[in-house]
């Protein structure tokens, strides 16, 4: 495993820790989209169907378990925790997330590396992950007072896929037969969706002011 891939995984892991820290410490999920969190839980379930069938490494298995466990616990907190759920911006978080699920599933059935159940679910998870941030970005734009942890969480989540792109470029040049168009294009789309956010993130960082996306 190369350093870029490790950096990507760690950024992903830290993003989840930041979100859980926010939920645990201030017992609030204000500004966090439950729609996006549910989509991530679905992404991990569909992608990690191979967790018990294909052993890759201990690192790989542990990380999969962490991502599965944390994504479901975040959804649980936002839906059922008696204090946390009160801070959920339900009226603002109106993105119709199921409109993303069906097109991704159809696309996975049409465009995949191999027509097997596991492979289609894997491909579906890539397509869905690429667009799963959309409800969160919409909510961010609607929220007037976004706290710093939410902004950092979104930034880290975007940075993770950007680092993965560098990892794919590295692997392409160092490994024979490493060619995965579906993964690459999905990852690229995912990163591009963050373009606007990244732009305003750096602007707010440079000018040392609170991030607010223009309506």
């Amino acid at each position: 495993m190369n350093i870029l891939r490790l950096a990507g995984d760690m950024t992903h892991l830290i993003s989840v820790i930041v979100l859980l820290l926010k939920i645990h410490s201030i017992k609030s999920c204000a500004g966090i989209s439950l729609k996006t969190q549910e989509l991530y839980a679905l992404v991990f379930v569909s992608r990690y169907l191979n967790i018990f069938t294909d052993f890759i490494s201990l690192y790989n298995t542990i990380m999969k378990l962490i991502f599965l466990g944390t994504s479901f616990s975040i959804v649980w907190y936002m839906r059922y925790h008696k204090i946390v759920r009160r801070s959920y911006d339900k009226d603002q978080d109106t993105f119709r997330h199921y409109f993303l699920v069906l097109p991704c599933l159809i696309l996975a059935l049409l465009i995949n590396e191999r027509f097997t159940f596991k492979e289609i679910m894997w491909t579906f998870s890539l397509y869905l992950e690429a667009v799963a941030i959309l409800p969160q970005l919409v909510l961010l734009q609607r929220t007037k007072n976004t706290d710093n942890l939410t902004v950092q969480y979104i930034f880290l989540l975007g940075a993770y896929r950007a680092l993965y792109i560098l990892n794919w470029i590295y692997r392409y040049f160092t490994e024979p037969d490493y060619l995965h168009w579906i993964t690459w294009i999905s990852g690229l789309v995912q990163t591009i969706l963050y373009g606007d956010f990244f732009y305003y993130y750096f602007l707010s960082w440079k000018n040392n002011v609170k991030l607010q996306l223009p309506a």
Binding site: I56, S57, K64, W122, Y164, E175, H180
Partner: peptide
Amino acid sequence: EAHSSSHDEL
């Protein structure tokens, strides 16, 4: 069945 080389990623 051998896994595809992209499947060692997370």
